[in-house]
Design a protein around this nucleic acid. Structure first.
Lengths: 178, 178
DNA sequence: AAGCTAAAGTTCGACACTAAAGAATACACA
DNA sequence: TGTGTATTCTTTAGTGTCGAACTTTAGCTT
Protein backbone atom coordinates (compact mmCIF):
# COMPACT_ATOMS: atom_id res chain seq x y z
CA UNK A 1 0.00 0.00 0.00
CA UNK A 2 2.51 2.60 -1.12
CA UNK A 3 1.18 6.12 -1.23
CA UNK A 4 3.40 7.09 -4.13
CA UNK A 5 1.77 7.44 -7.50
CA UNK A 6 3.04 4.90 -10.02
CA UNK A 7 5.24 6.41 -12.69
CA UNK A 8 4.00 6.35 -16.25
CA UNK A 9 6.24 3.40 -17.07
CA UNK A 10 5.11 1.47 -14.03
CA UNK A 11 1.52 2.11 -14.94
CA UNK A 12 2.00 0.79 -18.44
CA UNK A 13 3.93 -2.26 -17.28
CA UNK A 14 1.05 -3.21 -15.02
CA UNK A 15 -1.55 -2.49 -17.66
CA UNK A 16 0.31 -4.80 -19.99
CA UNK A 17 0.34 -7.54 -17.44
CA UNK A 18 -3.44 -7.24 -17.21
CA UNK A 19 -4.04 -7.01 -20.92
CA UNK A 20 -1.29 -8.52 -23.00
CA UNK A 21 -2.36 -7.19 -26.40
CA UNK A 22 -1.92 -3.61 -25.31
CA UNK A 23 0.56 -1.56 -27.35
CA UNK A 24 2.90 0.04 -24.81
CA UNK A 25 4.02 2.70 -27.25
CA UNK A 26 0.50 3.89 -27.90
CA UNK A 27 -0.38 3.64 -24.27
CA UNK A 28 2.58 5.74 -23.26
CA UNK A 29 1.59 8.59 -25.54
CA UNK A 30 -2.05 8.53 -24.56
CA UNK A 31 -1.47 8.33 -20.83
CA UNK A 32 1.27 10.93 -20.87
CA UNK A 33 -1.15 13.25 -22.62
CA UNK A 34 -3.82 12.69 -20.05
CA UNK A 35 -1.45 13.07 -17.10
CA UNK A 36 -0.02 16.24 -18.55
CA UNK A 37 -3.40 17.78 -19.06
CA UNK A 38 -4.40 17.05 -15.50
CA UNK A 39 -1.26 18.65 -14.10
CA UNK A 40 -1.61 21.64 -16.34
CA UNK A 41 -5.16 22.18 -15.24
CA UNK A 42 -4.16 22.09 -11.61
CA UNK A 43 -1.50 24.70 -12.30
CA UNK A 44 -3.90 26.89 -14.23
CA UNK A 45 -6.51 26.51 -11.54
CA UNK A 46 -4.19 27.87 -8.89
CA UNK A 47 -3.24 30.85 -10.96
CA UNK A 48 -6.84 31.56 -11.81
CA UNK A 49 -7.76 31.45 -8.15
CA UNK A 50 -5.23 34.18 -7.34
CA UNK A 51 -7.01 36.34 -9.90
CA UNK A 52 -10.43 35.57 -8.51
CA UNK A 53 -11.46 33.57 -11.54
CA UNK A 54 -12.83 30.02 -11.77
CA UNK A 55 -11.94 27.49 -14.46
CA UNK A 56 -15.44 27.53 -15.95
CA UNK A 57 -15.26 31.31 -16.26
CA UNK A 58 -11.82 31.08 -17.80
CA UNK A 59 -13.06 28.65 -20.43
CA UNK A 60 -15.76 31.06 -21.54
CA UNK A 61 -13.37 33.98 -21.59
CA UNK A 62 -11.02 32.03 -23.83
CA UNK A 63 -13.77 31.23 -26.30
CA UNK A 64 -14.84 34.83 -26.55
CA UNK A 65 -11.33 36.13 -27.10
CA UNK A 66 -10.70 33.31 -29.56
CA UNK A 67 -13.71 34.47 -31.56
CA UNK A 68 -11.82 37.68 -32.28
CA UNK A 69 -13.22 41.17 -32.52
CA UNK A 70 -16.02 42.06 -31.79
CA UNK A 71 -15.80 39.20 -29.28
CA UNK A 72 -19.34 37.97 -29.63
CA UNK A 73 -20.79 34.47 -29.61
CA UNK A 74 -24.14 32.77 -29.09
CA UNK A 75 -24.53 30.79 -25.89
CA UNK A 76 -25.29 27.63 -27.84
CA UNK A 77 -22.04 27.93 -29.77
CA UNK A 78 -19.97 28.31 -26.64
CA UNK A 79 -21.80 25.39 -25.05
CA UNK A 80 -21.05 23.13 -28.01
CA UNK A 81 -17.39 24.05 -28.08
CA UNK A 82 -16.98 23.48 -24.37
CA UNK A 83 -19.04 20.30 -24.36
CA UNK A 84 -21.70 21.68 -22.04
CA UNK A 85 -25.46 21.60 -22.07
CA UNK A 86 -27.28 24.84 -22.89
CA UNK A 87 -28.58 24.84 -19.33
CA UNK A 88 -25.10 24.97 -17.85
CA UNK A 89 -24.26 27.77 -20.24
CA UNK A 90 -27.20 29.85 -19.06
CA UNK A 91 -25.98 29.59 -15.49
CA UNK A 92 -22.37 30.34 -16.32
CA UNK A 93 -23.41 33.42 -18.22
CA UNK A 94 -25.57 34.46 -15.29
CA UNK A 95 -22.59 34.37 -12.97
CA UNK A 96 -20.21 36.05 -15.38
CA UNK A 97 -22.74 38.72 -16.22
CA UNK A 98 -22.98 39.45 -12.52
CA UNK A 99 -19.24 40.01 -12.39
CA UNK A 100 -19.29 42.25 -15.44
CA UNK A 101 -17.13 39.81 -17.41
CA UNK A 102 -19.61 39.50 -20.27
CA UNK A 103 -22.63 41.26 -21.70
CA UNK A 104 -25.87 39.56 -22.67
CA UNK A 105 -28.32 40.97 -25.21
CA UNK A 106 -30.92 39.61 -27.58
CA UNK A 107 -29.87 39.12 -31.19
CA UNK A 108 -31.80 41.70 -33.25
CA UNK A 109 -31.78 39.34 -36.25
CA UNK A 110 -33.41 36.51 -34.34
CA UNK A 111 -34.93 37.36 -31.04
CA UNK A 112 -34.77 33.80 -29.77
CA UNK A 113 -31.05 34.13 -29.88
CA UNK A 114 -28.82 35.85 -27.40
CA UNK A 115 -25.48 37.48 -28.04
CA UNK A 116 -22.78 37.16 -25.44
CA UNK A 117 -20.09 39.80 -25.62
CA UNK A 118 -16.84 40.39 -23.82
CA UNK A 119 -16.57 43.40 -21.53
CA UNK A 120 -13.35 45.36 -21.13
CA UNK A 121 -13.06 43.84 -17.68
CA UNK A 122 -13.31 40.39 -19.20
CA UNK A 123 -10.69 41.17 -21.79
CA UNK A 124 -8.31 42.47 -19.16
CA UNK A 125 -8.85 39.39 -17.03
CA UNK A 126 -7.95 37.22 -19.99
CA UNK A 127 -4.75 39.16 -20.45
CA UNK A 128 -3.81 38.88 -16.79
CA UNK A 129 -4.26 35.13 -16.88
CA UNK A 130 -2.28 34.76 -20.08
CA UNK A 131 0.59 36.78 -18.66
CA UNK A 132 0.79 34.43 -15.70
CA UNK A 133 0.13 31.30 -17.69
CA UNK A 134 2.79 32.02 -20.27
CA UNK A 135 5.41 31.96 -17.54
CA UNK A 136 4.25 28.54 -16.42
CA UNK A 137 4.04 27.27 -19.97
CA UNK A 138 7.52 28.42 -20.85
CA UNK A 139 8.68 26.68 -17.70
CA UNK A 140 6.95 23.50 -18.75
CA UNK A 141 8.66 23.37 -22.13
CA UNK A 142 12.01 24.41 -20.74
CA UNK A 143 13.73 21.09 -21.48
CA UNK A 144 12.78 21.09 -25.16
CA UNK A 145 14.89 22.72 -27.83
CA UNK A 146 13.29 24.97 -30.40
CA UNK A 147 13.47 22.18 -32.94
CA UNK A 148 11.84 19.76 -30.56
CA UNK A 149 9.09 22.21 -29.73
CA UNK A 150 8.29 22.52 -33.40
CA UNK A 151 8.29 18.77 -33.88
CA UNK A 152 6.08 18.25 -30.86
CA UNK A 153 3.63 20.90 -31.97
CA UNK A 154 3.51 19.44 -35.44
CA UNK A 155 2.86 15.91 -34.24
CA UNK A 156 0.17 16.96 -31.82
CA UNK A 157 -1.48 18.97 -34.56
CA UNK A 158 -1.53 15.88 -36.70
CA UNK A 159 -3.27 13.90 -33.96
CA UNK A 160 -5.68 16.72 -33.47
CA UNK A 161 -6.57 16.90 -37.12
CA UNK A 162 -7.40 13.23 -37.01
CA UNK A 163 -9.80 13.65 -34.13
CA UNK A 164 -11.26 17.05 -34.99
CA UNK A 165 -12.09 16.23 -38.58
CA UNK A 166 -13.48 12.82 -37.82
CA UNK A 167 -17.14 12.90 -38.76
CA UNK A 168 -18.32 9.50 -37.56
CA UNK A 169 -16.29 7.33 -39.88
CA UNK A 170 -17.32 3.83 -40.86
CA UNK A 171 -16.45 2.15 -37.60
CA UNK A 172 -17.72 5.04 -35.59
CA UNK A 173 -14.46 5.02 -33.70
CA UNK A 174 -13.61 8.65 -33.76
CA UNK A 175 -16.36 11.01 -32.91
CA UNK A 176 -16.82 14.73 -33.17
CA UNK A 177 -17.80 17.32 -30.64
CA UNK A 178 -20.11 19.51 -32.66
CA UNK B 1 -20.81 35.04 -35.85
CA UNK B 2 -19.54 31.87 -37.50
CA UNK B 3 -20.47 28.69 -35.75
CA UNK B 4 -17.29 26.91 -36.76
CA UNK B 5 -14.66 26.41 -34.11
CA UNK B 6 -11.43 28.29 -34.84
CA UNK B 7 -8.59 26.02 -35.84
CA UNK B 8 -5.61 25.82 -33.54
CA UNK B 9 -3.61 28.14 -35.77
CA UNK B 10 -6.42 30.65 -35.98
CA UNK B 11 -6.72 30.59 -32.22
CA UNK B 12 -3.06 31.30 -31.75
CA UNK B 13 -3.01 34.04 -34.34
CA UNK B 14 -5.78 35.85 -32.50
CA UNK B 15 -4.20 35.29 -29.11
CA UNK B 16 -1.03 36.83 -30.44
CA UNK B 17 -2.90 39.86 -31.67
CA UNK B 18 -4.28 40.31 -28.15
CA UNK B 19 -1.02 39.69 -26.36
CA UNK B 20 2.04 40.34 -28.49
CA UNK B 21 4.64 38.78 -26.22
CA UNK B 22 3.07 35.36 -26.49
CA UNK B 23 5.31 32.61 -27.85
CA UNK B 24 3.30 30.95 -30.62
CA UNK B 25 5.42 27.83 -30.52
CA UNK B 26 4.75 27.25 -26.85
CA UNK B 27 1.13 28.17 -27.22
CA UNK B 28 0.66 25.70 -30.03
CA UNK B 29 1.95 22.81 -27.97
CA UNK B 30 -0.03 23.68 -24.88
CA UNK B 31 -3.31 24.30 -26.65
CA UNK B 32 -2.96 21.24 -28.84
CA UNK B 33 -2.49 19.20 -25.69
CA UNK B 34 -5.56 20.61 -24.09
CA UNK B 35 -7.71 20.21 -27.20
CA UNK B 36 -6.55 16.64 -27.63
CA UNK B 37 -7.35 15.74 -24.09
CA UNK B 38 -10.85 17.13 -24.38
CA UNK B 39 -11.53 15.16 -27.55
CA UNK B 40 -10.11 12.00 -26.07
CA UNK B 41 -12.30 12.33 -23.03
CA UNK B 42 -15.39 12.73 -25.15
CA UNK B 43 -14.46 9.59 -27.05
CA UNK B 44 -13.78 7.65 -23.87
CA UNK B 45 -16.98 8.92 -22.34
CA UNK B 46 -19.05 7.51 -25.17
CA UNK B 47 -17.42 4.12 -24.98
CA UNK B 48 -17.82 4.02 -21.23
CA UNK B 49 -21.49 4.82 -21.58
CA UNK B 50 -22.04 1.82 -23.81
CA UNK B 51 -20.58 -0.32 -21.04
CA UNK B 52 -22.73 1.26 -18.38
CA UNK B 53 -19.81 2.99 -16.72
CA UNK B 54 -19.31 6.65 -15.86
CA UNK B 55 -16.06 8.58 -16.17
CA UNK B 56 -15.72 9.00 -12.40
CA UNK B 57 -16.07 5.25 -11.97
CA UNK B 58 -13.58 4.62 -14.73
CA UNK B 59 -11.01 6.83 -13.05
CA UNK B 60 -11.22 4.87 -9.83
CA UNK B 61 -11.04 1.55 -11.66
CA UNK B 62 -7.89 2.71 -13.42
CA UNK B 63 -6.21 3.66 -10.17
CA UNK B 64 -6.97 0.32 -8.57
CA UNK B 65 -5.68 -1.67 -11.51
CA UNK B 66 -2.65 0.59 -11.71
CA UNK B 67 -1.88 -0.23 -8.09
CA UNK B 68 -1.27 -3.82 -9.19
CA UNK B 69 -2.13 -6.97 -7.31
CA UNK B 70 -3.79 -7.19 -4.79
CA UNK B 71 -5.53 -4.10 -6.20
CA UNK B 72 -6.01 -2.26 -2.93
CA UNK B 73 -5.78 1.42 -2.07
CA UNK B 74 -6.92 3.78 0.67
CA UNK B 75 -9.65 6.23 -0.28
CA UNK B 76 -7.43 9.16 0.60
CA UNK B 77 -4.74 7.98 -1.77
CA UNK B 78 -7.15 7.64 -4.66
CA UNK B 79 -8.61 11.03 -3.87
CA UNK B 80 -5.18 12.68 -3.94
CA UNK B 81 -4.22 11.07 -7.22
CA UNK B 82 -7.46 12.07 -8.88
CA UNK B 83 -7.46 15.54 -7.37
CA UNK B 84 -10.69 15.03 -5.44
CA UNK B 85 -11.75 15.84 -1.91
CA UNK B 86 -12.18 12.95 0.51
CA UNK B 87 -15.88 13.72 0.56
CA UNK B 88 -16.28 13.14 -3.15
CA UNK B 89 -14.30 9.93 -2.78
CA UNK B 90 -16.67 8.62 -0.13
CA UNK B 91 -19.62 9.09 -2.44
CA UNK B 92 -17.91 7.57 -5.46
CA UNK B 93 -17.01 4.52 -3.43
CA UNK B 94 -20.60 4.32 -2.21
CA UNK B 95 -21.88 4.15 -5.74
CA UNK B 96 -19.25 1.73 -6.96
CA UNK B 97 -19.72 -0.49 -3.95
CA UNK B 98 -23.40 -0.65 -4.79
CA UNK B 99 -22.54 -1.89 -8.28
CA UNK B 100 -20.11 -4.47 -6.97
CA UNK B 101 -17.18 -2.80 -8.68
CA UNK B 102 -15.16 -2.42 -5.47
CA UNK B 103 -15.03 -3.75 -1.94
CA UNK B 104 -14.74 -1.61 1.16
CA UNK B 105 -13.35 -2.89 4.47
CA UNK B 106 -11.63 -1.41 7.49
CA UNK B 107 -7.85 -1.60 7.61
CA UNK B 108 -6.95 -4.05 10.42
CA UNK B 109 -3.68 -2.16 11.05
CA UNK B 110 -5.39 1.15 11.59
CA UNK B 111 -9.08 1.11 12.12
CA UNK B 112 -9.57 4.71 11.04
CA UNK B 113 -8.48 3.64 7.63
CA UNK B 114 -10.47 1.89 4.97
CA UNK B 115 -9.19 -0.40 2.25
CA UNK B 116 -10.79 -0.24 -1.16
CA UNK B 117 -10.34 -3.34 -3.26
CA UNK B 118 -11.19 -4.30 -6.81
CA UNK B 119 -13.82 -6.98 -7.38
CA UNK B 120 -13.64 -9.43 -10.26
CA UNK B 121 -16.49 -7.53 -11.84
CA UNK B 122 -14.47 -4.34 -11.59
CA UNK B 123 -11.44 -5.95 -13.11
CA UNK B 124 -13.45 -7.31 -16.02
CA UNK B 125 -15.02 -3.92 -16.61
CA UNK B 126 -11.57 -2.39 -16.81
CA UNK B 127 -10.57 -4.97 -19.39
CA UNK B 128 -13.66 -4.36 -21.48
CA UNK B 129 -13.00 -0.65 -21.55
CA UNK B 130 -9.35 -1.12 -22.43
CA UNK B 131 -10.23 -3.42 -25.29
CA UNK B 132 -12.51 -0.78 -26.77
CA UNK B 133 -10.22 2.12 -25.94
CA UNK B 134 -7.16 0.57 -27.52
CA UNK B 135 -8.94 0.50 -30.85
CA UNK B 136 -9.68 4.19 -30.58
CA UNK B 137 -6.16 4.97 -29.44
CA UNK B 138 -4.53 3.08 -32.27
CA UNK B 139 -6.82 4.98 -34.60
CA UNK B 140 -5.74 8.26 -33.07
CA UNK B 141 -2.03 7.58 -33.62
CA UNK B 142 -2.56 6.11 -37.06
CA UNK B 143 -0.74 8.90 -38.90
CA UNK B 144 2.44 8.56 -36.84
CA UNK B 145 5.25 6.21 -37.72
CA UNK B 146 6.76 3.98 -35.08
CA UNK B 147 9.74 6.30 -34.83
CA UNK B 148 7.49 9.30 -34.40
CA UNK B 149 5.43 7.55 -31.75
CA UNK B 150 8.59 6.89 -29.79
CA UNK B 151 9.74 10.48 -30.15
CA UNK B 152 6.38 11.82 -29.13
CA UNK B 153 6.19 9.56 -26.10
CA UNK B 154 9.69 10.52 -25.08
CA UNK B 155 9.07 14.25 -25.33
CA UNK B 156 5.78 14.07 -23.46
CA UNK B 157 7.50 12.05 -20.76
CA UNK B 158 10.08 14.78 -20.43
CA UNK B 159 7.40 17.41 -19.98
CA UNK B 160 5.68 15.19 -17.49
CA UNK B 161 8.81 14.70 -15.45
CA UNK B 162 9.16 18.44 -15.23
CA UNK B 163 5.69 18.90 -13.85
CA UNK B 164 5.40 15.77 -11.72
CA UNK B 165 8.68 16.24 -9.90
CA UNK B 166 8.21 19.91 -9.30
CA UNK B 167 7.93 20.37 -5.57
CA UNK B 168 7.06 24.06 -5.26
CA UNK B 169 10.25 25.51 -6.68
CA UNK B 170 11.47 28.99 -5.81
CA UNK B 171 9.03 30.90 -7.97
CA UNK B 172 6.22 28.57 -7.10
CA UNK B 173 5.49 28.25 -10.76
CA UNK B 174 5.16 24.53 -11.06
CA UNK B 175 3.09 22.86 -8.47
CA UNK B 176 2.50 19.30 -7.43
CA UNK B 177 -0.63 17.31 -6.96
CA UNK B 178 0.15 15.38 -3.81
C1' DA C 1 -1.84 5.85 32.03
C1' DA C 2 -4.05 10.66 30.48
C1' DG C 3 -4.40 13.93 27.56
C1' DC C 4 -2.95 16.33 23.41
C1' DT C 5 -2.30 16.35 18.51
C1' DA C 6 -2.56 14.53 13.98
C1' DA C 7 -4.72 11.77 10.48
C1' DA C 8 -8.65 9.39 7.88
C1' DG C 9 -12.97 9.19 6.52
C1' DT C 10 -18.00 10.56 6.88
C1' DT C 11 -21.75 13.88 7.18
C1' DC C 12 -23.89 18.26 5.95
C1' DG C 13 -25.02 22.41 3.32
C1' DA C 14 -24.16 25.01 -0.88
C1' DC C 15 -23.43 25.18 -5.64
C1' DA C 16 -22.54 23.59 -10.61
C1' DC C 17 -23.88 20.44 -14.13
C1' DT C 18 -27.14 17.24 -16.62
C1' DA C 19 -31.45 15.67 -18.72
C1' DA C 20 -35.84 16.72 -19.84
C1' DA C 21 -39.69 19.66 -20.22
C1' DG C 22 -41.24 24.39 -21.35
C1' DA C 23 -41.56 29.08 -23.69
C1' DA C 24 -40.60 32.13 -27.41
C1' DT C 25 -39.39 33.03 -32.02
C1' DA C 26 -38.48 32.09 -36.94
C1' DC C 27 -39.37 29.69 -41.11
C1' DA C 28 -41.76 26.62 -44.50
C1' DC C 29 -45.74 25.46 -46.75
C1' DA C 30 -50.38 25.05 -47.59
C1' DT D 1 -52.85 34.17 -43.14
C1' DG D 2 -52.45 30.18 -40.36
C1' DT D 3 -50.52 26.07 -38.85
C1' DG D 4 -46.75 22.97 -38.04
C1' DT D 5 -41.99 22.26 -37.21
C1' DA D 6 -37.43 23.41 -35.82
C1' DT D 7 -34.37 26.18 -33.15
C1' DT D 8 -32.68 28.63 -29.11
C1' DC D 9 -32.59 29.56 -24.57
C1' DT D 10 -34.59 29.03 -19.79
C1' DT D 11 -36.57 26.51 -15.99
C1' DT D 12 -36.90 22.54 -12.96
C1' DA D 13 -35.63 18.30 -10.57
C1' DG D 14 -32.00 15.12 -9.56
C1' DT D 15 -26.99 14.04 -9.00
C1' DG D 16 -21.98 14.94 -8.14
C1' DT D 17 -18.45 17.69 -6.08
C1' DC D 18 -16.48 20.94 -2.75
C1' DG D 19 -15.53 23.16 1.79
C1' DA D 20 -16.00 22.71 6.43
C1' DA D 21 -17.29 20.65 10.70
C1' DC D 22 -17.39 16.21 13.11
C1' DT D 23 -16.11 11.30 14.70
C1' DT D 24 -12.99 7.84 15.43
C1' DT D 25 -8.52 6.01 15.95
C1' DA D 26 -3.32 6.19 16.44
C1' DG D 27 0.76 7.93 18.29
C1' DC D 28 3.35 11.08 21.11
C1' DT D 29 4.43 13.43 25.48
C1' DT D 30 4.63 13.85 30.16
Amino acid sequence: MPDRQPTLDEQIAIYQREYRDLDPQVEKVVNALSRLDRRMNVAYGRQLATLGLSSPEWEVLKELVMAGSPYQLWPGTIAKRLGLTPAAMTHRIDRMFGQDLVTRERDPDNRVRVIIGLTDTGREKWLEVMRKASVFEEDLLQDLSTTERTQLGEMLTRLLRRVEHAQHDAGGRLTDLD
